[in-house]
Design a protein around this nucleic acid. Sequence first.
RNA 1: GGUCCCUUCGUCUAGUGGUUAGGACAUCAGGUUCUCAUCCUGAAAACACGGGUUCGACUCCCGUAGGGAUCACCA
Length: 476
Amino acid sequence: MSSKVRTRFAPSPTGFLHVGGMRTALFAWLVAKQGGGQFILRIEDTDQKRKVEGAEEHIVECLAWLGLIPDEGNKERIRQSERVKNGIYQNWAEKLIESGRAYADPYSPEQVQEFRAQAQADKKPFLYRNHRPDNPPQWEPGLPLRFKSEPKEYVTHDAVMGDIKTGPEVVDDFILIKADGFPTYNFAHIVDDTDMEISHVIRGQEFIASLPNYRNLYEALGIEPPIFATVPHIMNEQGNKKLSKRDGAKDILDYRSEGYLPETMTSFLATLGWNDGTEQEIFTVDELVKKFSLDRVQKSGARFDERRLLWTNGHFIREMELSELYKKVAGFWPKTADKYDDDYKKKVLSLVQERLKYFAELPELSSFFFEEPPVDKNLIENHKKLKQYDKSQLKEMLETTKTKLEGIRNFKADAIQKALNELLEQTGEKPIVLFSLIRIAVTQAPASPGLAETLEVLSKDVCMHRIHRQIADFQV
RNA sequence: GGUCCCUUCGUCUAGUGGUUAGGACAUCAGGUUCUCAUCCUGAAAACACGGGUUCGACUCCCGUAGGGAUCACCA
């Protein structure tokens, strides 16, 4: 066997990619990079009926988002459908016919279905090989070609699952080439993996039951099998089935458009079913390349918990340099921010950075910095302390505040904080009363960054205006 | 139903015969002169069950239960 590491991601272009497929791709990429080898993208489009327009580009884009750039098959996409034209599968099929390990299937799908129904009625497992025709016709276009299996026991080693023991009853005659002339996945992937010198076949759990069949075919073909690695599925939030699109699994690119970082997705996906045995919770891509190993991948499925994803993203956002973060959030500002310059927006961003969990939250967290918010009476009426005060008392506090702030020469956070502290003494009020009142007057928001910093960024004029507005509101 | 795989806090997990069963997310409480968030401290929270093996089982074996995958001319 070649010692070169070559892995592949082999999706079918039938729709968008979700976290399950993405994680499988990530694992394959990590194994390739770790071994100094290649990562290959191969589009499994032998089922022309299920092909979805644009799905292929979508897959490439998803991979690129996480930096999983295929070493082959990116620009010159490797598509099975094109390899069909080259006659590769045909050649291998003919070899199998010659060696007596493949035969034309004379039955229609309906007839096969009847056999299957009969077996079910008899409560017996259905095996096609029990219905092998005695004298199969010559194989010709329009007839499916079946593999002639030689059932036996196997102990199949899987890099994730360990040794899997199976009996001969799971080995059967399966279709190699369909009536439409296209090879099935079961046949095509083995030919392709061999042809492309794939060293590790890393794929989802749905293929584990087919492994004995593949072993049998590898033997018939005289090919040394690659290393198998079967990755368990990511489960839905209820934990009762594999994550699927029907079940609300999101398009990977949705996370990008909501403002999740690629490093978040990479770390999150890798640690969903894998860990390095230490207490490290978050990994950079470089760390993963160094530390990842298939034998520490969990054997059972893990639930997809978006709250952990959110936490991971918040972590990366907080760690980021302001200027870098500023570039990344470019498309996420509220529309009203357009009129403001970079400097102002950067200041706002620095205040909301530690509160931001994903970029799409930015408008909600920052809108009052860019537009005058409407006065929201509920904020005071529902405030646990402020609701106990008369409007006239609140009005008086604000007027005192206004005068005090008016007198600040250099409207900076430390000077403002000093003034605010003096106001506490002056009015004899608790911070929770006075500061809450000012904060509401100025932001009209249930939450905001620190008061002094917020006032500074907003500027003296704006603060004066908004406090005045609140005072006026008390008079009505 | 057959076959294969799996089973530690609500969730993701550490753990490979002797541990006060550890961490993280989430939750709750306290602290950081206002809110939210961050940060810090703390709390609650788990070995599915039943048999063995053993001086001793979360760890090994068997069974039961539960969960998942698969049984296409789909991948």
